[in-house]
């Protein structure tokens, strides 16, 4: 087995707390992703998904309310936007950049790409990039592949080619990965040290897995657990000087009790001095310069052996 292919996506060990530095001596990085997808299944956004009261709420009152809360707490977010949404809500998406938010790509229609042929996936990435560039006036720097509420795994899906194709298309970062809680490198080729910077994501800080989860009508509303996860992670990461991130969906977090909770949490968070709240692209640019893969990717040569009767 070359390196640990098929087992790991990154190197042997994360950076320790003491190795971390943020711009201007900031003590902790705080990042926020807002997912504008309304896809319910692996095929991505369908006409049915777009024609629900929740989708309408998410694009109107929910998003407006969320933006207002972000504005109040001077929080900047990265909006993960499927090409379909950029196309159907062109002015809305464009207006987000005026408030200092970043627009990143989130698939053509937030479809599951894991089974796509390489050429098919390349075409989808190209078309998505083109549509977003047209709407925002600039090529997106980042690509997301976030999970949906009904997914089998709450982690998001990529194909064996995704990372390579994103590099080929000039993307700076992949917006969601789970191998670390700080930015880290996804190794697409061991020999040439070809890597794509990956920003951390974790479903315990994603509203959709706590609010009327797994679907509306279940009555399983656990905003308290979500809040305790946010608080607990923020406090712990702040103490360590690392990175805190949360993932929000306007159709979920924009609704009354949840919006109030977010508002209060952000007020608490803003009470801490020395936070750095970049967009994902700003964070990626800083990281690529401060911790370039050439110096910080610590890939040990493999000591793996193949045996009959064992996984290879």
């Amino acid at each position: 087995m070359p390196w640990k292919q098929g087992y790991t996506i990154s190197d042997e060990r994360s950076l320790t707390d003491s190795e971390l530095r943020w711009p201007d001596g900031a003590g902790c990085c705080v990042a926020m992703t807002v997912d504008l997808s309304v896809a319910s299944g692996p095929e991505g956004i369908t006409a049915a998904d777009l024609t629900t009261p929740e989708a309408l709420f998410g694009a109107n009152q929910g998003l407006a309310a969320l933006r207002e809360v972000l504005r109040r707490h001077a929080m900047r977010a990265t909006f993960a936007v499927p090409a379909v949404i950029a196309h159907t809500h062109r002015d809305l998406v464009r207006s987000l950049t005026d408030e200092g938010h970043e627009i990143a790509a989130h698939g053509f229609r937030h479809e599951d790409v894991s089974g796509l042929e390489r050429d098919e996936e390349r075409q989808r990435i190209a078309r998505t990039t083109e549509i977003l560039a047209d709407v925002t006036g600039g090529k997106p720097a980042g690509w997301f592949s976030l999970p949906r509420q009904g997914d089998r795994y709450a982690v998001g899906a990529v194909s064996p080619n995704t990372v390579d194709l994103l590099l080929e298309a000039g993307y700076l970062y992949l917006g969601n990965g789970l191998a670390d809680d700080i930015p880290h490198y996804w190794v697409s080729d061991f020999a040439s040290r070809r890597t794509l910077l990956t920003l951390p994501y974790y479903y315990h800080f994603d509203d959709q897995f706590f609010l009327m989860f797994p679907r509306k009508g279940t009555g399983l509303e656990h905003p308290d657990a979500l809040l305790r996860n946010w608080r607990g992670e923020f406090a712990a990461q702040y103490r360590r000087g690392r990175y805190f991130h949360m993932t929000l969906h306007p159709q979920h977090i924009g609704w009354s009790n949840r919006l109030q909770m977010l508002d209060e949490f952000l007020a608490e968070l803003r009470g801490y001095p020395s936070l750095w709240n970049p967009t994902a692209a700003e964070c990626a640019r800083y990281w690529l310069e401060a911790y370039p893969a050439s110096a910080h990717l610590r890939l040990a040569p493999t000591i793996w052996q193949d045996y009959p009767g064992s996984l290879s």
Partner: peptide, 22 residues
């Protein structure tokens, strides 16, 4: 890996070796 789960799932487990155990 044994269950042939996709890459993001492997990465979720990888956190244990890169960060968690330490």
């Amino acid at each position: 890996r044994l269950l042939n789960e996709p890459p993001m799932q492997l990465a979720k487990g990888e956190f244990g070796g890169r960060v968690g155990i330490w």
